[in-house]
């Protein structure tokens, strides 16, 4: 089974780490990832850029709205995610709008650029969730 593990933390403190603190944490994180990576079981790993870099596409009854900032509602929950390469934010917004058009009902799409820590090479295994 391929799992997504979503990390939640206080961004103001995480982005206030000093270079040394950051390096110390990263070293421990890489040590944890390494066995998975060696076994070919690690998917893409990254850290999302600060929420200030986020844009949200919100679909209601009318045309989807493009809003600056992260997704902030609490009624909807995270149901899935894409990672893809886009040349511009506009391209990413267009893709998110297309997604919203295909998905019936209301939905929101938070677009967050991220730093890649590991490109990932996990294949969905025999017991995979494909």
């Amino acid at each position: 089974m391929l799992y997504a593990i979503l990390c939640y933390a206080h961004e103001e403190t995480v982005f206030a780490w000093s270079k040394d603190e950051e390096a110390a944490v990263m070293e421990k994180l890489y040590a944890l990832q390494e066995p998975l990576a060696k076994a070919g079981k690690l998917g893409p790993v990254g850290r999302l850029m600060p929420t200030t870099a986020a844009t949200t596409v919100r679909k209601g009854r009318d045309e989807p709205l493009v809003l600056d900032g992260p997704f902030a509602e609490t009624k909807e929950v995270l149901l899935g995610f894409y990672t893809a390469e886009f040349e511009t934010l506009d391209e990413a917004v267009t893709f998110a709008k297309d997604l919203s058009a295909v998905n019936p009902g209301s939905s929101s799409y938070e677009i967050r650029p991220f730093y890649v820590f590991h490109p990932g090479d996990a294949q969905v295994g025999a017991g995979g969730a494909s």
Binding site: M49, T52, A53, D90, V93, P113
Partner: peptide
């Protein structure tokens, strides 16, 4: 730089 370019894209919109 990556964060900055993402931010500029947002502004330009």
């Amino acid at each position: 730089i990556a964060e900055a370019l993402a931010m500029l894209d947002k502004a330009v919109r």
